[in-house]
Design a protein around this nucleic acid. Structure first.
Length: 334
DNA sequence: AAAACTGCCAACCGCCCAACG
DNA sequence: TCGTTGGGCGGTTGGCAGTTT
């Protein structure tokens, strides 16, 4: 007898998430932190299963996510880490700030795998493919395939080829015992990898969750200048133009306002908000435009800019939560 | 211009495992 | 110790967009 489904799927919505659902989930998590995922949909007013909510949050809505293709450096890291860890995507992802296991897995399957094969490297073993092995995937490879492979091998001065060769060298120099060591001593290995790639040892799993008693969102906090709304409606949302605000002021207030977030940038200096470089947005302009987008309900529906459509917390909607340790209540937002 | 094909990625599925009573 | 539960993980799928024919 198999395991029971994580939830009763009757009446639950599936498929792509709508902007409204995203907002509800964002508001809920920002206000309450991550708690029991099973309870989230009900409390947030979503017709989704908890698992779906968790995935949506971790893979798409989390504020510390980077968007866009993996950089060459990140790709190199993925290849090296994969050589050591195998398909343990979450572990690999934990070494790449702002990247999710799903994203890395997809990138591996759609880009890196092909690159390695093209290079004559077995993506599974990270060792050179023998001619017979090379043919296993393509029983009778077309001439174009052979040509591509030859070309790739011939152009060793090609930058990407060079990068891969360096990577392969490093992989081959790393020993099996290192992997075994990783199994036994993840901490040290993480440190070693972080040192190798000169990245801050960051893992979103390490971001502390908010305890219910810690949730105190001051109702009177006014992070934005009280600009008159041009189209005041009966809803609680108002129109603000973030672009007119002092940007560092916004950063500072957001940082205070959303203490649960690790804004993922190693260069973030809590004492100097002018250095704020959140991974969420490339620069201040983007930060501001994104913030405007959600606060003013400007959710982009054009799929062409979907990758650009990240979120900003709807800071106008927060109200103080009344909670205690044993039983916390949630007053529906919006 | 339209059909067919390909690539990409968000979302889903089902298994595993740790925590807890 | 065992059963139950919930979260995490890796593999897979479906649909959309872009490209080719």
């Amino acid at each position: 007898m198999g395991r029971q489904p994580c939830c009763d799927k009757v009446g639950l919505k599936q498929g792509p998430w709508t902007a409204d659902e995203d907002k509800k989930l964002i508001n809920f998590i920002l206000t309450n932190g991550q708690c029991c995922w099973r309870a989230v949909p009900k409390l947030a007013g979503l017709l989704r299963c908890g698992k779906s909510c968790r995935l949506r949050w971790t893979n798409y809505l989390r504020p510390d996510l980077k968007r866009g293709l993996l950089s060459e450096h990140e790709e190199k890291m993925v290849i090296d880490l994969h050589a050591q860890l195998g398909n343990r995507w979450s572990k690999i992802a934990s070494h790449l700030p702002g990247r999710t296991d799903n994203e890395i897995k997809n990138h591996w399957n759609t880009h890196i795998k092909k690159k390695l094969k093209k290079m004559g490297i077995d993506p599974l073993t990270h060792k050179p493919l023998s001619p017979s092995t090379t043919l296993t995937d393509h029983q009778s490879p077309p001439d174009t395939e052979k040509t591509q492979f030859s070309e790739a091998m011939d152009h060793e001065n090609n930058e990407s080829v060079q990068v891969l060769n360096e990577t392969i060298s490093s992989i081959q120099s790393s020993t099996v015992t290192e992997v075994a060591k990783d199994e036994q001593d993840d901490g040290q290995e993480s440190k070693r990898i972080a040192e190798t790639f000169q990245v801050v040892d960051f893992c979103t799993d390490e971001v502390p969750l908010i305890e219910p008693h810690e949730i105190l969102l001051p109702n009177n906090i006014n992070i934005l200048p009280a600009l008159p709304s041009s189209s005041s409606s009966s809803s609680t949302s108002s129109n603000y133009d973030i672009s007119v605000c002092n940007q560092s002021y916004v950063h500072e207030e957001l940082h205070q306002f959303l203490p649960s977030f690790d804004w993922c940038s190693p260069s973030f200096d809590s004492t100097n908000y002018n250095n704020f470089e959140a991974g969420l947005w490339e620069d201040d302009d983007e930060f501001i435009s994104n913030l405007n987008m959600l606060i003013n309900d400007e959710y982009e529906t054009d799929t062409n800019v979907r990758s650009h459509t990240t979120f900003a917390p709807d800071v106008t909607h927060y109200s103080r939560m009344v909670m205690d340790d044993d039983c916390w209540k949630f007053e529906q937002l919006l």
